[in-house]
């Protein structure tokens, strides 16, 4: 099946165009297009940055936490990051990474039904969020909602996911893509740490596969961080991730396309393609050691 021809990707144009474009254009009653806003559609070079053009999604830490629980790994609260770290961490790189780590920890303790720790983690998130001026996303109202729903795992995961999305939106709207990327990176690293730190994980093929499936995500994360770190404030961390990326290079995968099936009534498409992951045993150990070292570097 042929894909649509990739075309020009524009992730941003000049302000004048933005204002016009976000308002959309009108469709005439006869169905023909009618652009009613005359704008200069020529991007101004000074307002554009050529960046390679793609947007990346980093898997939610909630998904990893759920996979850990499903695999039956023992809940280990001590694996989570110390909550007092948020009080002392300085600098936006450290604060952003720790915020992301707390987000992953929050998912981990929530799916393991440790409401008390979830509340404490949310309080720590609020503190670090304040340092990063994210009070619009992590505020007292969120804490109150959290407190009132401690018994509902689904609600806590909803609140958390919505708050992190609001923070991401705020950061991107305010040209703080570096902080946005670092928060994602901290969450991703912590999720991997929580998965890989239990020796039992290496015996669970689903979890081992899940670790291997992070290969493309890590490559995307490195690109995202390099792209956004214009102040070169996170070079040490990025260098560490690149070393980790090199360890992932030994992971191989296969993919076989299968025709998807769409159920229009349920607005669902079932994607049935198959994939396999192969991770050399010694590679898993090396990845685990590197993940731990990187995490220790953040928490030092």
């Amino acid at each position: 099946m042929a894909a649509p021809k990739p075309s020009i990707i524009a992730l941003g144009l000049s302000l004048g165009l933005l204002i016009a474009s976000c308002g959309g254009s009108d469709t005439a009653s006869d169905g023909t297009q009618s652009d009613t806003l005359a704008v200069d559609t020529t991007p101004k070079e000074t307002e554009l940055i050529n960046v390679g053009g793609q947007l990346f999604s980093i898997p939610s830490p909630v998904q990893t936490a759920l996979a850990i629980r499903k695999a039956g790994l023992k809940y280990q609260k001590d694996l989570t990051a110390p909550l007092d770290k948020g009080d002392v961490v300085v600098g936006k790189v450290g604060q952003s990474l720790v915020l992301g780590m707390y987000g992953a920890d929050m998912a981990y303790v929530t799916v393991h039904k440790d409401g008390q720790r979830a509340m404490a983690t949310m309080q720590a998130i609020e503190k670090v969020g304040n340092k990063l001026e994210l009070t619009n996303s992590f505020d007292r109202a969120l804490l109150e909602k959290f407190k009132a729903n401690l018994g509902s795992e689904d609600s806590l995961l909803q609140f958390s996911g919505t708050a992190f999305r609001a923070a991401d939106q705020y950061l991107k709207n305010n040209q703080r893509d570096d902080v946005s990327a670092l928060v994602l990176a901290g969450g991703w690293l912590e999720s991997l740490y929580l998965t890989i730190s239990d020796p039992a994980a290496a015996k669970d093929q689903t979890l081992v596969n899940r670790i291997g499936e992070q290969k493309n995500t890590l490559a995307a994360l490195v690109e995202l961080l390099e792209r956004s770190d214009k102040e070169k404030a996170a070079t040490t961390f990025i260098a560490g991730l690149k070393e980790l990326n090199a360890l992932f290079a030994g992971i191989t995968s296969t993919y076989t396309f299968q025709e998807p099936v769409t159920d229009a009534a349920k607005k669902t498409t079932f994607i049935n393609s198959t994939s396999t992951i192969t991770i050399p045993a010694d590679q898993l150990g090396a990845i685990s050691a590197k993940v731990t070292a990187l995490r220790n570097m953040i928490l030092a």
Binding site: I9, L11, G103, Q158, G161, F164, R165, D168
Partner: peptide
Amino acid sequence: IPDGQFYRALLQGDEQAEF
């Protein structure tokens, strides 16, 4: 459950964003 991320792109004509 929201994935915690916000994706936006600004498009004109036949431009496409890739996620």
